[in-house]
């Protein structure tokens, strides 16, 4: 069951304040990294919602992100919609696609679920790659950024864009957290633990799973819109399964089923990648060793480790107190 422990709230508040403070002082490249982190953070929150709480390890979230990015670009550039309606359309399309995938894969569990989502993700990838409408391998350029000059914000400025991206992360978090606290969220967690029981209680299992997957897909589509607005260029690589695999790694690295943990994971992953790749072209190996080390420590990711330590420390005094009382 999802709860906001004091640790989680403190972490979130610290991250939000830290990110905003950094956005005001960072140089150009720092702002680029901040936007990159924000996009990954939205994607991994979306993934944690279904993977961490519903046990649905998806390998198609990269594709859902990519569908959002392409839908946004095509709607805003070729169909001439302005940016916000185009975003709504893109998010809705990703959600609809995710609903279908979630419904079809609802009966599969474990590795079979992973592979089924992989299959759908790869189909979307091939479709985009081969369709001349989407520019094929060369991708599409010219995705616009929303025009907020009416309220005095110029999103072509990197600093304003980074703050806008942070705001979208916050929005994503709120959607995910309120989903988890709703009846649907409780059903999702219940399904993960005991599907038979909930089925007996009269829950339409496939519909609950598909709805949760659709919400997650909508958020992934939002990440796609943001990615398209950030780089203003998109390519089929966005839909590749390796993007989904990387997102899954980030979720687990941060702490599965904690929502806050994956955000921490996203920060760690992007920063590590940039720091290490500046030193050596063999940065994958270093990141790989870090991943292995995290697992060997037997913690639920970095954030899970901190949570466990805090819980142990909190339990100790009460235990001692209980002893003293006895």
């Amino acid at each position: 069951m999802f709860t906001h422990t004091p640790l989680r709230l403190t972490t979130l508040a610290t991250l939000a304040i830290g990110a905003l403070a950094y956005a005001f002082v960072a140089g150009f490249f720092g702002l680029e990294i901040l936007a990159e982190i924000a996009i990954l953070a939205i994607l991994v929150i979306a993934l944690d919602l279904v993977a961490g709480f519903g046990g649905m390890l998806s390998l198609c979230h990269g594709a859902l992100l990519g569908v959002g990015a392409y839908a946004f670009t095509v709607a805003a550039k070729d169909a001439g919609l302005s940016a916000f309606p185009a975003m709504v359309l893109a998010v809705a399309l990703s959600a609809a696609l995710a609903f279908v995938i979630g419904a079809v894969c609802a009966r599969s569990i474990g590795i079979y679920f992973i592979m089924a989502t992989l299959a759908f993700g790869q189909m979307a990838y091939s479709f985009v790659f081969q369709s001349p409408l989407f520019g094929g391998d060369d991708g599409l350029s010219g995705a616009p950024r929303p025009d907020l000059t009416a309220i005095g914000i110029d999103l072509t400025d990197s600093r304003a864009f980074a703050i806008y991206a942070i705001a979208l992360v916050a929005l994503t978090y709120l959607v995910a957290a309120s989903t988890l606290r709703s009846g649907l969220g409780r059903s999702l967690v219940g399904l993960h633990h005991n599907e038979k029981r909930l089925r007996a209680l009269g829950l339409t299992v496939w519909r609950a799973k598909a709805t949760a997957f659709a919400i997650s897909g909508a958020l992934a589509g939002l990440a796609g819109c943001l990615a398209a607005q950030h780089t203003q260029y998109i390519s089929p690589g966005l839909l590749s399964w390796t993007v989904s695999g990387e997102a899954l790694v980030v979720v687990i690295l941060g702490g599965l089923g904690t929502l806050a943990g994956p955000i921490v994971g996203a920060i760690l992953f992007v920063v590590l990648k940039h720091e290490i790749s500046a030193i050596t072209p063999y940065w994958h190996a270093i990141v790989g060793l870090i991943l292995i080390a995290v697992v060997m420590s037997r913690a639920n990711g970095v954030f899970g480790y901190v949570e466990a330590r805090m819980a142990a420390r909190a339990a100790k005094p009460t235990l001692e107190k209980a002893k003293a009382d006895a």
Partner: peptide, 29 residues
């Protein structure tokens, strides 16, 4: 790696083996 991760659940296994893939690709390079 494998023996200690056998009972660690699929999440840990995914992470460890992805780590291994990253290391292996660069090792061959």
């Amino acid at each position: 790696l494998i023996r200690s991760q056998r009972r660690a659940g699929p999440m840990a296994q995914v992470l460890v083996t992805f780590g291994l893939i990253f290391v292996a690709v660069d090792a061959t390079r």
